[in-house]
Design a protein around this nucleic acid. Structure first.
Lengths: 354, 354
DNA sequence: CTGAAAGCGCTTACAG
DNA sequence: CTGAAAGCGCTTACAG
């Protein structure tokens, strides 16, 4: 049977017990209860136990608003990404969430839609919420509002893209090396005319990938080929198809991110060219379903889980004031996952039930 | 040049201005400032304007912790899903996030990993954070902790799966009808032995889909076929392959969710059976890349954006105490997206650049 | 329409 | 080791 109206301790029902309630039950001063819940050392074994018993009995949980008002941490961090539904960012979100939780933190998630104005508004909203720190995939790494935020004192870690206009930590991926590895692989296959299909080429991340691609062509002494910048998808399709049907058509394509890869696959599907046979393909960003396609897609895999975990860890360290260099740029390695679209043979063609 | 140490208003630098600071600048009592920021009617035009000017001048933002301590809303809601990285849930998260933001709300996202214990802990953490309401995809709709939460007074809306042990709002999808439409389509194609491949069949959502499938077989006067329950993937593959190679092999498969569909595609890939020709396939849940496969996959599309938006809206209404029936179950329709895996012809086989 | 007082539930000094 | 006091920045009564 439920207690109605009052608990046996004289507390109103439906109202959360307070620190004072605990003090009354444990027959100590509120101060002492506060010491116990903050693990302050100067409390005698005996009283500490009485207090803990009272806490359990009342199912007491400290009121966070009151603690925050006294300058304590909120135990929450913000994560602002361009698009929550994008597989790359949702994989990062997953890891951030897990890391935060393992440390007693909660994550406030928001999407900037790659719009800097939006992003600025979100940062402000989060700052005033408040949160203890912000994890951000910057929509535009040169925006002034980032300078303001970075110098405001709230811990800030950039993910995937470095902030160019302020001193802020970042966790990134070795984009240049990854791109080079992918393009080199195409070169090994004997490809001569490797075209780059790029999207969001204003982002430093993508610029690095393009740079890696060009660097590799240079090293291989191949003539610099065209880089196709996808802005409008429909238009890009026209351009790419024209290119593919032209006399000097490319024998390989390097795509700079997953949506460029998918867009390219879709286009090639509409022609009678077969990927891997008529034109090789290597894409930056690996996506689960690439294994289900025929041919399966060779891709440069980014360590999304590590991106999320490392950045969340770094942010928490900043929040707790751990000793750290003034500015940390963590660069994670990427892997080339060789499948078939580059021209390689299928590796596991047999059913595995035999 | 930056002010150092002090603002010209005599405020310490680096410290956020308070309501009292605004009052001092506007030469009114703190109470009056409070009235202005809460849009209280009894303030004269004149003073209100002075106060607003002071607010702008100081760039004042109310301290949320202090407001919450006084019983105000936090303007935050929690969203607890089984898996943040899953495309179905991340699509829902996206919509929830957008809807929340449009209403000045912030979303705390967490993953239960489909573990009820985990979920209970998260709900508690969120409740004490605190948040104004909770959006939940229940890991197990019969768990007692849900009864506790639902009766604790905090607004709670279940997404995708109804809570069976408490009176709580929910936003779901017409699973039975969707399954029936998919299976009926297979029947129209003349399929006689339609096997159901189910995953997580303990969930009411999946049970409904299986029920729809069975209902359809009954109506079509087809003998009830086997339902394959996938728990361990490797084992399921063995069973399915054996079934497909048997004498009474199915001529069609109905999969109850995206991961069952993908698993099935993967298995069929390893046999010499061709989807759409040797065995038809219709899956519940639509996924972007289904269009990129050959054959493309016929699927029952769930309105993920609407699921997220509707549930967030409903929760906000509950939070604001809007007049509403005591219990709302919103059932959204689903669409059968016909492509090729069911046996239909490709609809748009031509390149669209002509 | 405006304001002085008390209090939300904690914590940080300051005494003992 | 323990506690009484003041205060964090707001809001809700209560007066005028």
């Amino acid at each position: 049977m439920k207690n109605l109206g009052k608990h046996h301790d004289g507390l109103k029902f439906g109202k959360r017990p307070t620190l004072e309630d605990v003090a009354r039950v444990a027959k100590v001063a509120p101060m002492t209860v506060s010491r116990v819940i903050t693990n302050h050392p100067y409390v005698s074994q005996n009283t500490a136990e009485r207090v803990r018993a009272a806490i359990l009995q009342l199912n007491y949980q400290p009121n966070r608003a009151a603690r925050v008002l006294n300058g304590q941490l909120t135990r929450s961090i913000a994560l602002i990404v361009p698009d929550v539904a994008d597989r790359f960012f949702s994989a990062i979100s997953h890891a951030v969430q897990e890391t935060a939780r393992a440390n007693g933190y909660v994550v406030l998630l928001a999407a900037s839609n790659n719009d800097p104005e939006n992003e600025a508004a979100l940062i402000e909203q989060m700052t005033y919420h408040p949160v203890d720190g912000i994890l951000l995939v910057p929509a535009d790494s040169k925006r002034k509002h980032l300078t303001v935020t970075a110098s405001s004192g709230i811990p800030l870690v950039a993910i995937d893209r470095r902030i160019e206009v302020a001193k802020a930590d970042s966790v990134e991926v070795n984009n240049r090396r990854g791109a080079r590895a992918g393009v080199e692989h195409l070169v090994h296959h004997g490809c001569k005319r490797i075209v780059c299909v790029a999207q969001n080429s204003q982002l430093p991340t993508i610029r690095e990938r393009i740079a890696g691609y060009q660097e590799c062509l240079r090293r291989a002494k191949l003539p610099p080929a065209k880089t196709l910048h996808v802005t409008d998808e429909a238009e890009a399709k026209d351009v790419l198809i024209t290119l593919l049907l032209s006399r000097r058509r490319p024998d390989a394509l390097f795509t700079t991110n997953n949506s460029a890869t998918i867009c390219t696959i879709d286009i090639l599907d509409r022609t009678d060219m077969k990927i891997g046979r008529d034109v090789a393909l290597v894409g930056f960003d690996d996506v689960e379903f690439y294994t289900l396609l025929h041919p399966s897609i060779t891709a440069i895999r980014q360590p999304t889980a590590e991106l999320g975990e490392t950045s969340a860890r770094l942010l928490l360290q900043r929040i707790h004031g751990d000793p750290l260099p003034p500015q940390v740029h963590s660069i994670l390695p990427v892997d080339l996952i060789i499948r078939e679209s580059c021209g390689c043979e299928r590796r596991d063609p047999l059913p595995n039930h035999t």
